[in-house]
Design a protein around this nucleic acid. Sequence first.
DNA 1: TTTT
DNA 2: TTTT
Lengths: 163, 163, 163, 163
Amino acid sequence: MASINKVILIGNLGKDPEVRHLEGGVAVARFPLATSETFKDKNGDRQERTEWHNIVVWRGLAEVAEKYVKKGQSVYIEGRIRTNSYQDKDGVQRYSTEIVADNMTMLGGRPDGGSSAQGSGSGSYNNEPSSAGVSTSSGSMGANKGGNSKSVAYEEEPDDLPF
Amino acid sequence: MASINKVILIGNLGKDPEVRHLEGGVAVARFPLATSETFKDKNGDRQERTEWHNIVVWRGLAEVAEKYVKKGQSVYIEGRIRTNSYQDKDGVQRYSTEIVADNMTMLGGRPDGGSSAQGSGSGSYNNEPSSAGVSTSSGSMGANKGGNSKSVAYEEEPDDLPF
Amino acid sequence: MASINKVILIGNLGKDPEVRHLEGGVAVARFPLATSETFKDKNGDRQERTEWHNIVVWRGLAEVAEKYVKKGQSVYIEGRIRTNSYQDKDGVQRYSTEIVADNMTMLGGRPDGGSSAQGSGSGSYNNEPSSAGVSTSSGSMGANKGGNSKSVAYEEEPDDLPF
Amino acid sequence: MASINKVILIGNLGKDPEVRHLEGGVAVARFPLATSETFKDKNGDRQERTEWHNIVVWRGLAEVAEKYVKKGQSVYIEGRIRTNSYQDKDGVQRYSTEIVADNMTMLGGRPDGGSSAQGSGSGSYNNEPSSAGVSTSSGSMGANKGGNSKSVAYEEEPDDLPF
DNA sequence: TTTT
DNA sequence: TTTT
């Protein structure tokens, strides 16, 4: 086998996350994330191209996204590529690619607050750009709200070993 | 800005690379790469899901792909996600996602040789699994002409891939 | 906060793993991993530099390392950098850097078998270069032998959702 | 061969970069970068461990570091691990590990300005947390000051191809 | 020596 | 639809 499917993104949310709470209490959040690259075209003019990524986060990370992550903010995402296939109305096979995140870290950024249910003004964020400092990794935590699998992993690592 | 768009894959080629030599001598190679993950479904049964990635490599890396990389082989890919949009025949906006690789390293693997122009049997590869040891990163090699612009004949081959 | 510490390596083991089973049943394995880069010196001559990394794996991954990973083999490692400090005999502060792996995937390669307790000949490996296909991620599995947190995570991901 | 040696870090500078301009005009900058992880110890108490990484950047990136990167700021670093060996005064072989960065992206953060030549107060930064937006990749650009190999690479990528 |  |  020997398979690796890993994505690392830093970008800005194009919209607030859309969160759904499934039967069983599992949360799923989705949001578009923009990354942009600058390059010079053949005339030497500086051009920018923006890439939009469909981010999906589950469980504890979805709840973090729901509470703390807003349109405009900058986040670090680690995850894997997943392409779903479906039939369109004409029966043609179509593909839709998304990034299933298993690590999300807020980097601050510029939330506009405008479309946020919590309605947090932009001022407080701008005064403390990356103060929220919320970072979570998904893992086998199930619906374990507020859990952080990374902490759990470290917790059981005996750190006071003689080497 | 502060944008990162990075993909790391290890997987197997679903087909030999298709190589095109553009006007100006620039080479482009494309191939599907499979990664697979194993998981347990809700009944506790082990399931496997295969993800297919559309890999694109340019210039020197494309020439390496053309010469050394075959269906079935395992490669390490580092690159970025790129989603192209186009109108389908009904004028609907469609998206197609690919991975533009800027680093490709052969890991050996299991070439079947069947559709390869060189027609090397699998035996020699199996005797020296990662002996080729070809690793290249694209960089500022630019329009480094000198590539052989002759296209390798591509033999259509029925296969059971999902695309 | 907003901290990321991530390492990705592909290299070959310089020795068989040394495994210790701690009080409580937790396993720790250590092995040196070589990566090498090729570059041209100022005279344009091709040079190779080998980097040695001290890999540390815990729990289930350590047991995988103990059973399946041998000197000479190629592995993919994902982990984090950790620098331990200690006093040398003269009371000078010294540092020792290691990579704590939380994902290890066998890529096949070229075990020499010589120093292996299992003494598996190289032939079987060469016939099936990456057939072992052992890949494990550490997580909140504790001493949960044979567990694979990545599988667990997927297991609870409702895959048949309407999107 | 098949070797990969890749490091991805997000952390804060512990000091302003120290920059040296070598004979031939090549610049080298060095700075310590802190990453920190939070975990629960065996008593369930939250603990933090900080890791210090010795970052080295060359050429254009070093000049970016010199001009724009200050103590306290948050940066994304991509690079490789390099362990140098030397003899200490007693002739004992010692090792020193550093991260040679080939990509550095400023993420904003909290510069204290105190030791900065430009002396920019923290206010302006806090108002525009990641406004500097400087991102550069080193490459085979040699002493090509101010060059950006990533741009160069993209520049020559014919983006208007028929696929 | 950073940051939260 | 973000950000610079």
